[in-house]
Write a protein that binds this DNA or RNA. Structure first.
Lengths: 254, 254
DNA sequence: TTTTGTGAATCGGTTCACAGCC
DNA sequence: GGCTGTGAACCGATTCACAAAA
C-alpha cells in the first residue's frame, strides 16, 4: 500500500467499511480530548481504551485511512485529529436545518457537539406560527412556509427532523424536493426517500427496548442459573465496547 | 425446532442474535400501527416494507422467536405484537429514572414512546437545586441527593443519563452503586461500568458526522465520476433499510 | 397457489497473531 | 523491545433459493 505520499492519500479511498466510518467519530472525540490535554502521542492501546473499543479493531480501522502511525511509538494526536476530520468531511462547514422545535429540537439546537464539529445550525423551522420569531439557542424560529427558501438560500444539504411522527414524511419530502440529500430522523417513522438520499435515524425508545430485553434476561438468569457454577453466569467477551457503535450502519442509498 | 408448545416457547431461547433483537422494536412499531388500523394479518413482504427491512431478513428474525406465521397466509398481527412484546420484556412495567433535566432530559420525559411501551418514568433527577420541585412533563424534578433513595424505593433497574459529559461518569457510578443494571447514555462520553451492567449510548452528533461522511462522498462523486457510465454512479444495494438499525449492537456484558 | 421457515452460500466485520519497522 | 500494520482465520449476520405447509 501507499504507493506515494501526495496530498490526497493516493491509492486508498475505495471504500472504508461502514463499521469503520461509524467509529471514526468516536476516535475523533477521544483524540480531541487528548489534544485538549496537550498529549502529543497515543498508542493504539491507550486510544482504544479511551474510545471504548479494542486495539486490534482500532488499528485495522486506521489502516483503512492510511499508515498514520509510527511503529514502536504510536499515533501523533494532532495529525490524526486532522486526518479523521478530513476523512469525515468535518473540515468543511455543513449548514443544517432542524425542523420541529419541540423539546427535542430545542435540545438539538442547543447541543454543543454540533458547532464544534463543523455543523452550523442555519435555521430552526417549526409549523407552529406561534413559535415564529422566538429565539431558541439564539436563533429565531422560522415558519415551515419558509422551508424551501431557507434550504436554497443557505445551500443546506443536511436536514434534521425532530417533528412528531405524523409530520415527518411530509417534511422529509419537502426537504428532499428542496435539495437536501442527507436526513437525520428523530421521528419514530420509517421515511421513504428517493435514491441518492441518505437517511439515518435515532429512535429514543428503541434503545430502551433493547436494554429491557437484556434486563429481562438477567432477571431470568438469576433463578434459572442451574447450569455452570458461580452466580455470575455467562462470562462472555471482554470488557469495554459501548452500546450501538459496533454498528453496521447500513448507509443505504435508500 | 418447536418440540412443544408450552407457555414458555419451549426449546428456543438460547440466544436470539443481537442484530435481531435490535430490530424487534422496529417490527413492533410497524405492527402496532397495523393493529391500530385493525389489520388482522400481514405477510412478511408487507410488514418488512413497513418496517424498512427486507422480507427474508424479517422471516429469519421471526424464525428465532418461533413459528408464529401461517404459510400461505402471513402473520396474525395481534398475536405477533404480543409475542414480540413479551420477548422484549415489554409486558412488564419498567420504572426508569432520567438524570439531567436539561432540554434533552425534558424531551425524554415528554416522549410518548416510553409510556406506551411499558416504560414508566419513576423520577426526574437534576443536580441544580433551582430545578427541584419544578414539574416537567407533570413529574416534579428531584435533587441528585435523593438519587439512591429513589432508585431503591422504586426498584429502578434502568437509568437514563442526559447530563453534560462531565457529570456522566459520576452519575453512572452512583446509579450502578444504587442497583441500576442498564444504562442508556446520551452524554458524549464512554462510561465504564462493572461487569453485568449494560450500557447503550445515543450520540446525537455521531450520526450527523456519519451523514457528513457520505455527503462529502456524494459531492466528490459528481465530479470524479470518470469511471463507469451514467451520472448516477454506485448503484449499490436495494431500496429500503433505514439508518443505524442494521446494528451489531454489541451488548457487551461490559 | 401463496407465503412461511430454513438450510446453504455469501458477505462483511472482528479477532488473532506475527512480520515489519521504529 | 515496543508498537504498528495486515494477512489469515474466524464468526456472525444477510441473502438466496427452495421445500414444506396451508
Amino acid at each position: 500500500m501507499a504507493t506515494g505520499r501526495t496530498h490526497r492519500p493516493a491509492t486508498r479511498s475505495r471504500g472504508i467499511p461502514e463499521a469503520t466510518v461509524a467509529r471514526l467519530p468516536l476516535y475523533l472525540r477521544a483524540l480531541t480530548a487528548l489534544s485538549e490535554r496537550s498529549v502529543p502521542t497515543v498508542s493504539s492501546e491507550e486510544l482504544a481504551a479511551a474510545a471504548g473499543v479494542n486495539s486490534a479493531k482500532l488499528r485495522k480501522d486506521f489502516s483503512y485511512l492510511g499508515s498514520y502511525g509510527t511503529r514502536g511509538v504510536g499515533y501523533d494526536v494532532e495529525y490524526l485529529v486532522y486526518q479523521i476530520s478530513r476523512e469525515l468531511g468535518l473540515t468543511q462547514d455543513w449548514p443544517v436545518v432542524i425542523v420541529g422545535i419541540g423539546n427535542l429540537g430545542a435540545a438539538l439546537a442547543n447541543y454543543g457537539g454540533f458547532a464544534s464539529r463543523g455543523f452550523r445550525v442555519a435555521a430552526l423551522i417549526d409549523a407552529d406560527p406561534a413559535m415564529a420569531g422566538k429565539p431558541v439557542a439564539g436563533i429565531p424560529v422560522q415558519h415551515t412556509d419558509e422551508l424551501e427558501k431557507i434550504i436554497k438560500d443557505n445551500g443546506v444539504s443536511i436536514g434534521v427532523i425532530a417533528t412528531p411522527a405524523g409530520a415527518a414524511q411530509q417534511v422529509c419530502d419537502r426537504l428532499v424536493a428542496a435539495g437536501v440529500t442527507s436526513i437525520l430522523n428523530f421521528a419514530p417513522t420509517v421515511l421513504s426517500v428517493p435514491d441518492g438520499v441518505d437517511v439515518r435515524k435515532v429512535d429514543l425508545s428503541i434503545e430502551l427496548q433493547i436494554l429491557a430485553f437484556h434486563e429481562q434476561r438477567k432477571a431470568g438468569e438469576e433463578t434459572a442459573a442451574g447450569d455452570g457454577a458461580q452466580p455470575a453466569a455467562r462470562t462472555r467477551g471482554d470488557s469495554a465496547d459501548q452500546g450501538p457503535d459496533g454498528d453496521v450502519p447500513a448507509v443505504m442509498p435508500a
